[in-house]
């Protein structure tokens, strides 16, 4: 019983804390325009580098823009990019992974060689390279991150296809005269969903991290649009005068990642009892 208690507490804590953090941030991102006290792009020369006060709760940046409003809009930017990236990476990854695992043979071999070569680059470096060639823009960023994170999905999808493709019900579907396509969509795809859900949750965190990192380097979301990463970059020269410009965006990134990581752990425990520890 004494051993069971902390385990139960942990499972619950992951779900409750992680879930509420993610929900809170999602609400913040969705209802941002109604909540933000100021226009995040509006310059105000009288408020330049103003410390947190009643009129600007989290202070103002080097152009007098309200930091709280920029943080709220930053959640929108980051959330949108992460959603789009994960959606593209998962869709394409599932497609290639299932096709490779189901058809085997040369299709599989060629897809896997290409996939492994993408995996041969450190993820962030690949994204950095694509951004270097295409120049900083939101669309390029989504593309770069999707390319960098898709290979992991391909691997997981292919592995789960390989584990089910010899099962009787797949054979049964064929015998019933279903086409390969119908068999794949109806019977193979649902079996990949558990591991892919766990992966997609974790990946959401990776993408947010990479987006912030690239924006911090000036190779992600181009200013003046606010993203937590480029807010950190533009606040850097003012580290001594206005440390809140650096503390707050980083706190937002960390809290988001913490929420996602905890939720990911809870999902993993729930969907994959083998991993339960």
């Amino acid at each position: 019983m004494t051993r069971l208690l902390p385990r139960l507490a942990r499972g619950r804590a992951n779900l409750v804390i992680g879930g509420s953090l993610v929900l809170l941030l999602a609400l913040l991102a969705i209802f941002g325009p109604m909540l933000a006290p100021y226009d995040p792009l509006k310059l105000n020369l009288r408020a330049v580098l103003k410390a947190p006060s009643a009129s600007h709760l989290f202070g103002a940046d080097e152009f007098g823009r309200d930091v709280l409003s920029r943080l709220i809009y930053g959640a929108r930017t980051t959330g949108w990019i992460a959603l789009a990236t994960v959606a593209i990476a998962v869709t394409l990854g599932l497609l290639f992974g299932i096709v490779a695992g189901f058809l085997r043979g040369w299709t599989d071999r060629i897809l896997m060689i290409l996939n492994d070569s993408l995996l041969a680059f450190p993820g962030l470096l690949l994204a950095l390279f694509i951004m270097a060639i295409s120049g900083a823009s939101r669309e390029a960023l989504i593309l770069a991150l999707s390319v960098a994170y898709m290979p992991a999905v391909v691997r997981v999808a292919r592995a789960s296809v390989l584990s089910v493709r010899e099962r009787e019900y797949i054979e049964a579907s064929r015998v019933m005269g279903n086409s390969e396509l119908v068999t794949m969509v109806r019977h193979v795809l649902p079996n990949c969903m558990a591991p892919i859900t766990v992966l997609a949750t974790t990946m959401f965190g990776w993408v947010i991290l990479s987006e912030s990192a690239l924006s911090f380097l000036g190779l992600g979301v181009p200013p003046p649009a606010p993203s937590w990463g480029n807010m950190l970059a533009s606040g850097r020269p003012f580290i001594t005068q206005a440390p809140y410009l650096l503390i707050l965006p980083g706190l937002c990134i960390s809290l988001t990642l913490l929420g996602i990581n905890m939720l990911g752990d809870a999902l993993r425990d729930w969907l994959d009892p083998k991993m339960q520890a």
């Binding site: 503390i247 913490l258 752990d265």
Partner: peptide, 17 residues
């Protein structure tokens, strides 16, 4: 889990600060 959630560049900036 906490350490896993802190981005390196922010942690670096805070250590620098």
């Amino acid at each position: 889990t906490l350490l896993l959630s802190i981005p390196s560049f922010w942690l670096g900036l805070m250590i620098l600060l």
